[in-house]
Every structure is written in C-alpha cells, then in structure tokens.
Design a protein around this nucleic acid. Sequence first.
RNA 1: GCGCGUGUAGCUCAGGUGGUUAGAGCGCUGCACUGAUAAUGCAGAGGUCCCAAGUUCAAGUCUUGGCAUGCGCACCA
Length: 1133
Amino acid sequence: MSKKFKEYNGLNLPELAEDILTFWKDEKIFEKSISIREGAEPFVFFEGPPSANGLPGIHHVMARAIKDIFCRYKTQKGYKVDRKAGWDTHGLPIELGVEKELGITKEDIGKKISVEAYNEACKKAVMRYTDVWNKVTESYGYWVDMDDPYITYKSKYMETVWWILRQIWDKDLLYKGYTIQPYSPKAGTGLSSHELNQPGTYQDVTDTTVVAQFKAEINTLPGFLNSYGDVHFLAWTTTPWTLPSNTALTVGPKIDYVLVKTFNQYTFEPVNVILAKNLVGYQFSGKYEEVEAIEALDTYEEGAKKIPYYILKDFKGAALEGIRYEQLLPYALPNDNPENAFRVITGDFVTTEDGTGIVHTAPTFGADDAKVAKEATPEVPPLLVKDENDNLVPLVDLQGRFRPEMGEFAGKYVKNEYYDDGDAPEKSVDVELAIKLKTENKAFKVEKYVHSYPNCWRTDKPILYYPLDSWFIKVTEFKDRMFQLNQTINWKPKATGEGRFGNWLANANDWNLSRSRYWGIPLPIWRTEDGKEAKCIGSIEELEAEMQRSVDAGFMEKVLFEDFVIGDYSEENYEKADLHKNIVDEIILVSDTGQPMKREADLIDVWFDSGSMPYAQWHYPFENKEKVEKTWRKADFIAEGVDQTRGWFYTLHAIATMLFDDVAYKNVVSNGLVLDKDGQKMSKRLGNAVDPFETLKMYGPDATRWYMISNANPWDNLKFDSDGIAEVRNKFFGTLYNTYSFFSLYANLDEFDYSEEDIKLERRPEIDRWILSELHTLVQKVDEAYADYEPTRAARAISLFVQENLSNWFVRLSRRRFWKGSYGEDKISAYQTLYSCLEVVTRLGAPIAPFFMDRMYKDLTAGVVKKGQESVHLSNFPVADASYVDKELEEKMHRAQTISSLVLSLRQREKIKVRQPLQKIMIPVLDASEKSAIEAVSDLIKSEVNVKEIELIDEGSGILVKQIKPNFKKLGPHFGKDMKAVAQVIMNFGQEEIAQLEKDGEISVIINEKNTTLTIDDVLISSQDIEGWLVANADGITVALDVTITPKLKKEGIARELVNRIQNIRKDSGFEVTDRVDITIQDDAELQPAVAENLDYIKQETLTEVLQFESEVVNGTEIAFDEVATRLRIKKH
RNA sequence: GCGCGUGUAGCUCAGGUGGUUAGAGCGCUGCACUGAUAAUGCAGAGGUCCCAAGUUCAAGUCUUGGCAUGCGCACCA
C-alpha cells in the first residue's frame, strides 16, 4: 500500500527546518513568493540596517521574526513584498573597533596611519560578521534579499545622502551654529553622548566651589527690596573658572526666596543676601546662628565665634525677574547686546536640592545655561568676544586656556589637569579666583566639594562643556508638521507613538549633524575662509563641474575622478568616485566671487545615513525616480526596537517630512527588549546572553519564533526562558504533529485522498460542523490580528484552536469515526473535516512558524487529489467563510464541554472511573431552547462521560432547588444607594418567593421602608441543586449524576476493562490494527458473566473471531482489575 | 531629575465600555486514560489583583499620590 501522507517517527524540529531550508534554496521559494505576485499591489517594507560590526544576538531574532511575519502574511494576502536588506556601515563603534584592533588612538590618524588606510580598515571591519549575520538570517527563516543589499558606504548611497542634504540646504533649513557640547581640550575633539556613556567616564572629583555674592543694582530692585541698602544674590558654582563668563542668574519662579541680613565671614562686612528659603539652613550652617530680632545683629563683633543672621523678608522667585546686577568679574563684556546681560531670569530647571537656589548662568559653558539664556526675553547674550580674526570666541580657548582678555589669568589652563606633568601651578585658577573673590567681598562661602564629573575616556582628563561649531538642521521650523504627520502613523503600541515619540517631536531641538570623525559621509559643504560664501554639493556631477571651475581658477590641479562617467550608473563606474573624507578633503572649490572654498571638516551624523535609506537604497533620484516616487517613498510597514524611537524612527520621519512633507512609514511596530529569564538585561559581561545558534540547534527556528511571539506582545519586554520554548515545542508543535500523525495513519489505511466531492455542510455531523465553525471563526480572528499587527493574538488564537478545539475535543471525540466502520459518508466527512482544519492551520501559522507549517502543508497537499502550491508561502491566506460559522453551535458545544467537565468532576469526587458506565445524568433546563441545545449534543456528552441517558428536567418536575442572585448591572443604576439593601432582600428569598416571581414576573418588596416592585429581569435565577442528588455546577449549568451501579452496569464496566486490556496486549504483541484474533481466557467467576452479557461488544471492539474460556491458560498474560484476576492469551486468527 | 511603560497564583501571561465565584498554561498534589502515546485528560491546592487615598450603591478595571521595576532623555549650578 502506497502511503500518500508521509508518516514520521517523531518530531525533530531543528532537522525539519534544515530540510525545508534546503528545499527553499533549491527551489528558490523566496524568489518565487515575490515573482508570483508580479503586477500585484506592492506592500512596501523597509529594513532597518543592522551593523555587521557586531555579532547578532537573540534580540535580533526577535526583531527579525516580527518583520518576517508581516511580510509573509502580506505575501499570502496577495501583495508583492520586496524585501531589500541593508547594512549600516558608518559610525563610531566601527571606528573604535578598528582603533582597538590596530592599537591606535584618534590622535594617530593622519600621523601613524593615513586617513585613507584608516578608512580602508573601517571598510573591511564593518562587513566582518556578514557571514554570521547571513547565517542567522537564513536559519531563522527571515526572508530578505541579501544578494542586493544597500550599503551605506557605497558611493551611490552617499550620493543620494548628499542630494538629500542639498534639498535641505535649498529649503534653507541648514545652518551653522554654536552648541554646548562635551569637549576634550587635550584630545581637541568633541565627544558624543555615546562616548560619555562609556563605563568609568564619570569619576568622583574634589573641586573648589564658590558661593559668590552678586551685587544687585539698587535702582532696578522692586519696591519690596529697595529699602535695605545693598542686596546680594548668592549663587553656587563647582566650576569657578566659568564665573568670568557669567551673564545671568537664574531663579525658579515658584521657589520661595528670602532676604537675609548677616555678615560676610571673610570680610566681616554686613551684607544682605538673597537665596532660596529651603537652603538657608544649608548655607548658614556651622558658625552661623539665626537671631530672633534684627537688633541682635548690632552686637556682632569682627571675629566672633558665631555670626548672627536675620531673615528680613520672603518672596517668590518670579518677583526677582529682571533685577540687574554688577558683573562679578569684569574682564570682558559680551560682544553682542551687552546691555541685556547681568540680570535675573527664570528657569524651571532650578531646584533647591543643593547650592542656593540661584543658578550662576554662563551660556558659553553650560547647555542648560545656553538654553535658558536664549529663551529669556530679551535674550541674554553669551560671553563671547572677538578674536584676532574677528570670530566670536569664549573666554577659554580650544586648548582649555584663558584668553588674553583675562588679565592676570590669561594663558592659564582652567583645569590643572591640562598642564603637562610637573608644570601645573600650586594653585589652580579655581582656587585663585576664590581667593580674589574673598578679598573683594564677593565670596560668601568657599569649600571643597566632591561630585561626579566626566573625564575624557581617551585622555583621562576632565572634559569641558564648550561651545562648538556645528551644522544644524532647523528641526524647530517643521516640528509642528512632524507632529501632525505622526498622528497619521499607526504605532504599535500606540503609547510609544503618542507618548514617547509624540512628546519627543513636540520638544524637538535642532538636529546637530556634525561629527568630528573620519569614517562616515562627509558634509558636502564648502565654505570660504570668512564663512561668507558656501556651497552645498548635491551630486557627483555637480562636484565635477565645480572642480572644473576650481581648476580653471587655479585652485586645483586637476579634477578628481576623471574617468568617472556621468550618467553611467554601473557599479564599476561608481567605484571610481569614492566620496569619503580622505578624498573629498583634497578638493578646493571656488566661490562665486572667486575665493577658495574648503570643505567643512565634519562628517554627517550616521543617523542621517540610515534615515536616508528609503531614497538612498534606490540611488534616488539619479536612478529609480519613478519607482521611488510612486511606491517606495513610504513604507507600509517597518519594525525595530523601542530604542530606535529617537533613532531610526525619528530620522526617517524627519527626512520624509522635510523632503516630501509626508510620512516615511504608515505602520510601525516598536518591539521591546529581550531580557534573560530573571528579567535582567542580557549582556556579555553578565554572561547571560543567549546565543541564537545554540537555541536554534536545540529547538529549531519555529518553536523559538512561536515562543517569542506567543509569550508576550512584541512591545513588552520578553523574559527569555528556553523552558518556554520547550513547552511550546511539546504543547503546540507536539500536539499539531500528533494530530497530523493521527490523520495520516488512518487516511493512509483508508486511502483517503480527498477525491470525493465535499460532503455538504448540512450533511456533516454536529461535531464536524462545529469544528469547521470554530475554524472559520479562527481564520477571521487571525486575519484581523495580523492585519492589525498583533502577532501575539494570532499565535495564541491558533494555539488555542489546535490544542483545545482540534486535538482535545474534535479528535478525541471523533477517534472512533476514523477506525470504526466502513469508508462511508460519515468517515469521509471526518477525513475532509480534519484535513481542512490541518491545512488551514498551516496557512494561518505559516508566517510565524514558516518551516514547520511548510512541511505539514506540503505533506498534506501531496496526499490529496487537488494539489496545493509548491510551498505554503506561495499559497493564499485562508478566507473566512461566514456560512460555516454557527455561533449557536459553538455555544452548544461549549455547553457540552462544561457539562462533561462537571460530570467528570462528579465521578472524580465519587471515585467512579470513566470506564464504568453509569445510567443517567439530569440537567435542569430553564426553557425549550436550552433543552434543544443540550439535546443536540447529548450523544457527544454521553460518550464522553460514559453515561447512558441524559434527562432534562424543567419546571414541572418540582425537584429543582433554585438560587437567586440580584442582577447588579440592571438594579444598580435604579436603586443607587439602596443597592445593598435590595441585594440583601433578594438573597434572602426562599423557594416560595422565587416561584412567585417566576409565576407573576414580579414581586413587591419593602426596601428601606419603601414599597418597590422587583421584576424577573432584576434578578438572575439558576437551578443550583436537585434534591437528593449529587450535583455540580458552573457557568450557570447544573448537572446531577445518578451514581447507582446496577449489576448490569457493573458487568458492562468489566467488559470495557477487559476490552482495554485486550487492546493493550494486542498492541504490546505487535499486532497490526487490522489483524483479527482469537482469545482464550482463564475462567474467572467475576469475568465470565460480564463477558457473556457483552460478548458481541467485546468481539467487535477487539476484532476477535473466537473468544473462549478455559480452566487453565498457561503462558497467558496476567490481567487484574476490580475483583478480576486472571490470565489470557491472544493469537492471530 | 524628566518622559513613557509595567506591576494579577511559585513562574509566564489573559482579564471590551466599573456589576459580586478574577481566568489560562507551566510547576505542584492526587486520580484517570492508554490503537494519537517522547503524548493526553480530569480534579485539587495556590490570589490583601504593588500600597494608600478618592470617585461610586459597586473598583483588578476610573482619578490622585506613593513604592518597585524596565526603557528613553538629561546630565545640572
């Protein structure tokens, strides 16, 4: 007999996946899944490029599973889903990796190693792990076209990025400006926040701190302050070297401040000082002493142990706004609008945790300071002065030294750590400044203070916050538009889009594009020395033309990339024009007025690279212009980790908004983190990182993917526990595999191949119609879940169907139909039904478990007349047919399950095993419809719980004990406060009241001394009990069980036990399912009458021809149950 | 510190618009089943639904405030 349906000896998921992978490769299934949809509507997916510089982790598997699921789903839905892979190749991590490898530092670049060689090394390093990435991609079944990926360091890609920047330039959204950035004077470079977050960067240091006294200009004091003579503001700083650059004091508008009269501890002069009320105790600790009366101050003598202080007045910070004060250290004035400097402004960031509640504000050296100064009206100018070249510079130069304007401090490093070893003076400028302030009655307090401060991770010297020149995109100009557009994007989860991303957009700052690096896309901006003329280059063609002009003007000897052919878009041609820093820095262009122009030295933020991918991956607009504009401009779907909210999600959105005034993606899934099973972040350091290849080897890709998707929503963090994968493997895949095995075993025996016409639905038995109804409900549910980007819901619904409905109920109850009786309509219906369920499940589950489902789909469709597709991934997604759905039937079956469960629990309680037949169960029913509903499934219940009859009892029987409960939902709104009393009254109803209520439909009661009428709808009545019977109830259903075991029933029970034993022996003896046998049993008083009475049944069940008793059966198999103990022998007939 | 999440059984998670027995799976205990069997079924034990206050006749569910935890941002006189 040829086996149409493949049978297996066990489930090996990893092996199965490898076979299917080979099949996919050999038959080019991925390619076909796209080519068969040629001409169909495209579903656009963008791949967020990973960096191949690091090894893939299990979280990448998670992210890629999500991407893959929806692309496969949409393919099955008939879309054409092109999936172009990509690689992110630029950026700091790559530079750092290379430097570590070569044993060099950034200072060595251009000295020990040429920029060219350095970049070459980066280029090599970045693709180092591509093989591993390709392997993980392939073996976990992530379908993406890796043969033609976009690579960000390729000239074509870079050219598009230049073109984009040129568009932004033309829209006047690019500018050069100052921003306060972490800066390492020793290394001469700005540091990124990434570099600042390196471990060990922040260290505890001891600094000299000063609480300075800023003297208010009396004529600007408000009325409530102008009668006390001189008034000083107290402001604290841990960086006294920034005090000469102070241009404002910031107070919290809602903070309470006080004016305090006291004496300066260094000069002993009487002073009035202002500080936050909360911090009086902190600043006036130690030798200070509060006095109750102002007169007490008069007794103070210079040098006395205790310094008295007296609080004169309190007020809100807002009242101080606008007061002007004398410059503390008048070495230089701000170049711009000095008249707006040296006044009190307000800022919400001010706290009273330490210091004085008044913040010394130096906009040139603090990011917050710069921000609050800029926001003040009028703007507070930063302390910038003109240098020798008329450029505006701060009072500290790029080496970290005070400028000449600083008098006696000129030329000194602001931190002693910046001096070469041994050259540092004894007193740092902080200390010297403190002394100077003390003597000038400008220091209220000077002390050492320990705090954490960042050091440059390369030079190990303190960093400075320093204003640096950078190129910015004026995001603030279009952030409102970005916010609006964002509201049209479907975010999963919603909160990330509305909250995290929305807030981020609402508060977006200008985008700092500049990076002082080597390996990246250079800014295509050339400027004249004075910065007055600039050009932004948007293509190689344009660059060539500009170079030609430069050659003509005599600034360059020859045009670079001479043999580059404009308009030739071949790879070979583009390899001739490398646009990296080492090349383009050589280029000098000529301005419109004939001045030489040099390239701005910085590179472009790598996030700009990846945000450009929708266009750059197609070399737009140089190639594929129409393709991009028509379809590829925006993605239907993207997915990455939440950490990309401010990264890729943002840059895509910003660039699309600027370029096209549109979104870059319509649906976005931002997935959470993958943690270890204890909820700890995975890291190499802790050794709890999960190797995707080990997991793959152990469980295979399908169980891993199914586990990750079904266990938690993608946007929740996943606590990754491989025990969970094992569970999924056993419970879900094991059950599905078993169900298939069951099907194939009998289908092969019966040579079922679906060659018959479909049995009409109305001719199929209840159970078939039920499972088909459940199946179509499932299709509907799963389709909706996928369409709504809810893979977890889809996976859970499929699992539930397979495990509970299909395996545990349909197959279990239908088993006999497959192996009993002839190949007739009922049997064919059973096969058709089970086949349909399995086949549909493979198509529903294919996006999540692509290997397993393909295997099963292929095995199923290979065995039937009507062949399927070559692969499940080339099939169409099932369509839910509402005509199959019968909610009432589903409800009935649910009731049957509840009833069965109740009966089984009663049996359990009475210790009566299921094999012992019982006579009857009784179920109270309230009305005719309930009655017929149970009757429809009564056969199923009877066979499931092994009882002979079901008696449905209604009103008339008079044996029901009813229970009544208030219908809170109905009564609540009506009775309100009296609800409790009403509930009490109803609960106290006896059988009589219930009967009356049922008869009349209403009953009058007294609630809180008021007469009221309750109707039948106000309560819920259920039959909870039957007098004198063993009952159980759940979900409003009550079941009573007749536990009497008559001699006849007892004999039947024995017969069933015997059948069971015979079946076991048959199986153990290795008989075929179809073998006919003869049985000899040793005499047994208990057994013989039972056999006699059930002979036909026994023979039929066990395919026995001759069954006889003998007084002695030698070599028989011993059997024993209940009171039976005997031997029997089975042989083939 | 700010922003966004999360907090339900030992573990992993469900619990439309508030309604009175808070569920599932795993694990645990017991019992069954055994021609789907590296399975399976049933039952049982196990919960101050993070805490507190509030709104309400009624709160796991709504409001406010805490606590814990995760992520992102900011690094601050």
